[in-house]
Design a protein around this nucleic acid. Structure first.
Length: 164
DNA sequence: GCCAACGTTGGC
DNA sequence: GCCAACGTTGGC
């Protein structure tokens, strides 16, 4: 069974809508050693990824994606024009890693950070305890809770639609 | 835009 | 290897 992760992104930079449009993407620009080590050591093809919008008006989990390629050198570190360029890195000794993701779905309604902080199931989520880590592990109970919440909302939405 | 928490750097 | 200074993140 694959694991669940939560990847943070600033929607002004790259949003779930961008991913939905492109269908798949290179998850690039990770410049934090702990996050990089997780990409290198733990993130596997087939793992599921909750996409989270941070540094924005409504911080929230907004969608689901899947890992389609395991860690490899992040191409942006070698591009002098990229904001993610790293002069200290070189192709024979790359410092930073990327993975590829494919779009799965939008959540029917974003699950707001505000809500997550209120629920016991999420109390030990890294989102709450280590908010700055950009590649976060989601333990199975929290993943279940998020997916259950999503199913409830789909049902509510379905019910409303039937009523019209 | 503020600021607390966290991460990184570099002198010793 | 410690730790002060500095830089960044991200919720509010």
């Amino acid at each position: 069974m694959g694991r669940y992760w939560l990847f943070k992104t600033e929607p002004d930079e790259y949003s779930i809508d961008d991913l939905a449009q492109e269908k798949s993407c290179v998850w690039e620009g990770i410049r934090n050693y702990q996050a990089r080590n997780r990409l290198r050591d733990e993130v596997k093809v087939g793992d599921k990824v909750f996409i989270y919008h941070s540094s924005c008006a409504i911080p929230a989990v907004v969608g689901l994606a899947e890992v389609t390629r395991a860690a490899y050198p992040d191409p942006t570190q070698f591009k002098p024009n990229s904001p993610y360029f790293d002069a200290q890195s070189s192709p024979d000794k790359p410092r930073w890693l990327a993975v590829n993701l494919s779009y799965k779905q939008h959540l029917s309604t974003p699950i707001l950070l505000k809500r997550i902080k209120q629920l016991d199931h999420f109390k030990n989520m890294e989102l709450v305890s280590r908010p700055r880590l950009s590649i976060q592990a989601v333990h199975p109970e929290a993943a279940d809770a998020l997916l259950t919440l999503e199913r409830e909302r789909e049902r509510e939405r379905g019910g409303r639609d039937n009523y019209r």
